[in-house]
């Protein structure tokens, strides 16, 4: 097990713990929720195999579901996110392709790349999550407001995490 794998395993536990113990209680204006734990899925290596990614997403989602008492809902949204991620990465490929060890890092990939990547995936995840939770299409306006505001909140938190904890240097490992 090399250092990068180890790093991601640590990230898994930290993000899940933060989500369950702290962020679960944060709701702004009754509408903006923060689903920080998807940061684990978003920050996985860019060259991750598809199937592996899907399985990890399912495990992550189920873990969070157990604590939220929403069996399958988070898991389903996470699996959707994991399925879309390779396509988003493909569309966003830089002119000279990704380098072998590239990770999702705001400083390395640039603001524009990171904003499009994170916003789109967070939005898809939240859209699936809130409509699955609702179980139907009633109260559509209120739910869309929830989706939009929650997307923003999660996105801002992700940027803060990136700025605080991710190194500016391109990782050479």
């Amino acid at each position: 097990m090399n250092r990068r794998t180890f790093r991601h395993i640590i990230q898994f536990f930290i993000f899940i713990a933060l989500q369950i113990l702290v962020v679960r209680n944060v709701v702004l204006f009754n509408t903006a929720f923060c689903y920080l734990y998807i940061a684990f899925l978003l920050f996985l290596p860019i060259q991750m195999p598809k199937v592996m990614l899907l399985l990890l997403a399912f495990i992550t989602g189920i873990t969070v579901d157990i604590f939220y008492d929403t069996v399958g809902i988070n898991a389903s949204a996470c699996v959707l996110l994991a399925y879309l991620r390779p396509y988003v990465l493909l569309v966003l490929t830089p002119r000279d392709d990704y380098e072998k060890n590239d990770t999702v890092n705001l400083h390395v990939m640039g603001w524009r790349w990171f904003t499009v990547y994170a916003l789109f995936l967070i939005f898809m995840h939240h859209l699936a999550l809130f409509f699955l939770e609702l179980g139907s299409f009633r109260a559509i306006g209120f739910t869309m407001a929830k989706v939009a505001l929650s997307t923003f909140l999660t996105f801002i938190v992700l940027i803060i995490i990136q700025l605080l904890f991710f190194s500016i240097r391109r990782s050479s490992r």
Binding site: K50, V51, L54, L55, A57, F58, G61, V71, G72, I73, A75, S76, V79, L80, A82, Y83, P86, L132
Partner: peptide, 18 residues
């Protein structure tokens, strides 16, 4: 099509659980 098939399988799992 392994990516899509695994995706489908997991979503069916989730739907069943829900």
């Amino acid at each position: 099509y392994r990516g899509f098939l695994v995706f489908l399988l997991l979503q069916i799992c989730c739907a069943y659980l829900i």
